[in-house]
């Protein structure tokens, strides 16, 4: 097997822009997914059964269908519902919706992990529910759910490869394109792997850094 580095160096510009598109759609999808997921989780934890039941159906629906099919539904099926989106917004929306239900489940388990008594204490002092979520539950649950959160974020990173199907010029589309033009499949696919590896590695490093940062109060023991 001969690795021809010129394939990579000749297309460095394209690869770089593909990398940026991947980074952009990924991070936008993560932000959207986490925001939606938090809303779903809060509605599930604090809402009544009228709110919870349809959310449960939505979660099951998204969890039990492939991301690719959901993406097609948004991009190709969207116009029939009056939702005509360009590829990139459609892709971000797809990623966000897909991720939101998993994030919601993670957040929900996080809310459950904070002892009820702490909320009763807050309640008695007149602290509102919203203040309680933001000041007492979220900071504590972050410590517990951070590993699961980072895990889901890295899954979404790799799911961005699917966006190539709806013609978003991200890393996978660019590099497989170069591969079929030049027949240098090994070089391009290897580069593709390295590209995702860098992104995922950066993400988990950041996660570990955060873990030690937010978990400091847990590590201090009685003297």
């Amino acid at each position: 097997m001969i690795f021809d580095p010129t394939i990579v160096t000749e297309h460095l510009g394209d690869i770089g822009s593909g990398f940026l598109v991947t980074l952009g759609t990924w991070s936008s999808g993560v932000v959207l997914g986490m925001a939606l997921g938090m809303l779903i989780a809060v509605a599930q934890v604090f809402g009544n059964s009228l709110v919870r039941a349809p959310l449960r159906v939505f979660i099951e629906l998204i969890r039990s269908t492939p991301f690719l099919v959901q993406l097609f539904l948004i991009y190709y099926g969207g116009p029939s519902f009056g939702l005509s989106l360009d590829p990139v917004p459609a892709g971000i929306l797809g990623l966000g919706v897909y991720g939101s239900v998993y994030f919601a489940e993670i957040f929900r388990s996080g809310f459950d992990s904070v002892a009820r008594g702490q909320l009763e204490a807050a309640d008695c002092l007149g602290i509102t529910r919203l203040q309680c979520i933001w000041r007492i539950q979220v900071p504590q649950m972050l410590v517990i759910i951070l590993p699961a959160l980072v895990n889901m974020i890295t899954v979404l990173c790799k799911e961005t490869a699917v966006l190539s199907i709806i013609t978003i010029p991200e890393l996978t589309m660019v590099l497989t394109g170069i591969g079929s033009e030049t027949f240098a499949f090994v070089e391009t696919l290897l580069m593709l792997c390295i590209g995702y590896l860098i992104l995922v590695e950066l993400c988990s490093r950041l996660g570990m850094l955060l873990e030690t940062r937010v978990g400091r109060f847990m590590n201090r023991q009685a003297r």
Binding site: A115, G117, Q118, A121, L125, P139, Q140
Partner: peptide
């Protein structure tokens, strides 16, 4: 109200616990 299990917020210092409701 004072509880059997204290129910302090573990991510806040002693002073933070006392001040939280005063602030919020």
């Amino acid at each position: 109200m004072v509880f059997q299990q204290f129910n302090l917020w573990p991510h806040m210092t002693a002073l933070g616990n006392v001040c939280e409701a005063l602030r919020q």
